[in-house]
Design a protein around this nucleic acid. Structure first.
Lengths: 307, 307
DNA sequence: ACGATCGTTGCGCCAGATTCAACGATCCGA
DNA sequence: TCGGATCGTTGAATCTGGCGCAACGATCGT
């Protein structure tokens, strides 16, 4: 059976790189010795390659005696056709390398909740100092479209709380204690601190379905460290809505320490959880957008927030 | 010492043929299996090549999970840049191959002296029958610029008498006896035939200096077959001038039989040379312009004049 | 939980890119 | 006119890198 789909954008008429290099260099030098020298090969190689090319084209590309080498009409035509195309290809590759490996151009970084802005700004300052040629734009994104912003490339980097499912993550830049948010009149409201085990005894307000499973497992686990099941409370659609459910006494919610500072309200009490690991925040980005710019910014952020 | 002249039209940023093919095919298929199938290689190869390319660019070109493959922004940009350039290159090569190997387009053949026209026309007829897609133009050229016409490409093929120095020659198409032109009153004018040895006894009119040495050696040798020196007569600047020198009794001149028919004049007698090889005529062309068109025409000319 | 589909990885082989050295042709200077 | 110098050619030897192979890991459907 005559296998289908063999026809391609890339017809099999393409010349090898060494053939193009040899042909165009010889077309420019018109001298086998100098051509060989420039390409760091022997004159024998030049002779072989040109001969093979000519056998393929079906006509001489160079008229050569042992004293003078010149292009034939067909050779001249081919050289004229090829030169701008080759220039264009090297330019295209150069641009791609610049985009991937260069630390220039533009980098868009975003924060998610204003309390992370200072950490991000320290990183921006150090990065800009190290790479003055790369313009950094800072913006704020909303939780709802943070993932989409990274995926569609409208934002290169984001400082967010871990875990951030499906994205590449840098080292943690911020660590905060975990607290339990309870209603003001809740039985635990007066405790000095609580253990994670209390989650088995009260319903826990749930994140909306769109939230990644990994994130939910970290914030609202299904079992306590001892293995006791955690009763699921009602679902809130936004973080404010979740806090309101807590205030209404419909459940409790583990949160980070910074939440207290930015969401302090009289109807909610925050009680430290003494045996929970801290919540980490750091830079996240799309794996597929990884560039030298991004790697360098992560490094700068790490250095700037090392203390 | 930092060797100079390494910079080239062809920067060493050029991708290998297989890298371009692999990248563009995968960019089109977005599927490793189908890409491998189209390129007749294994998926492992695709993976290796893409990885190597990405290491070189410094950023991912494809975002791939084991279920879906898609271009990253950098990959998309590179593919968009490369595609038209690759198309252009294959087109350039295709045109060169067509010019060299194809028997189409235009072929310009010429004759030199009208008596060769019938031979040439037989060849044209057979060639046109075999290759209707190739237009043949017939023209006449003058001896003086016949060589230049071949070299500058204004004529592809020429039917001329051998030897034709420095040009490629096909098999002889016409053979004619050699005659000795002498003045009407010359001592040899009444002979039935003469031997080449008589050249040692009379001055031989010489071709002009511009004539090729090889041709002169054939027509006006410096020694007879027996080794006797041939005295050099005066030089004529054109063939007519040379015949006039003969008519004036200033020398003799070996010529071809056809000359008698086309240059018959009362003051000159042509005597057969019984021991001279015939003069051959056939097609000549510039080595550096050799194409399939030309080779095919030579073949047609041989076949048409075989008898 | 299992099989099917896909991309990845490391090892080993061999075609083909490249070198090497001898050779032929052309030109120059003595 | 005869070496000597400069150049391109040729074919066999050499060795690198393109490529296949096969085991593996990840993801999805049933």
């Amino acid at each position: 059976m005559p296998e289908p789909g063999t026809g391609s954008v890339v017809s099999d008429q393409l010349l090898e790189r060494y053939e193009i290099e040899t042909f165009l260099t010889l077309a420019e030098e018109l001298h086998f010795g100098r051509t060989a020298q420039r390409l760091r090969v022997t004159t024998g190689r030049i002779s072989h390659v040109v001969r093979k090319l000519e056998r393929r084209i079906g006509a001489p590309l160079f008229a050569r005696t042992s004293r003078v080498v010149q292009l034939t009409p067909i050779g001249r035509q081919l050289a004229d056709d090829l030169t701008p195309l080759v220039t264009g290809m090297t330019e295209a590759v150069r641009r791609a390398v610049e985009a991937g490996r260069g630390v220039t151009g533009r980098l868009r970084v975003a924060f998610l909740g204003e309390w992370t802005a200072p950490t991000l700004l320290r990183a921006v300052n150090l990065f800009t100092e190290r790479h003055p040629d790369c313009a950094v734009e800072v913006r704020e994104v909303q939780l709802a479209n943070s993932r989409a912003s990274l995926l569609d490339g409208s934002v290169d980097l984001l400082i967010a709380s871990f875990p951030f499912d499906g994205m590449a993550c840098g080292p943690p830049l911020l660590a905060e204690r975990r607290l339990l948010a309870v209603a003001a009149g809740h039985p635990l409201a007066d405790a000095e601190s609580v253990s994670l085990e209390v989650l088995a005894e009260f319903p826990v307000v749930q994140y909306p379905p769109a939230t990644s499973a990994e994130f939910k497992r970290d914030r609202t686990p299904e079992r306590t460290p001892a293995g006791r099941p955690v009763p699921k409370g009602p679902v809130g659609n936004t973080f404010s809505e979740m806090l309101s459910l807590v205030a209404l006494g419909r459940g409790v919610l583990p949160v980070g320490e910074l939440t207290r500072r930015y969401h302090s309200r009289p109807d909610i009490t925050y009680v430290p959880i003494h045996d929970a690991p801290p919540i980490h925040r750091g830079l996240v980005w799309s794996e597929s957008n990884a560039t030298a710019r991004i790697r360098e910014f992560v490094r700068a952020a790490t250095d700037a927030n090392r203390n």
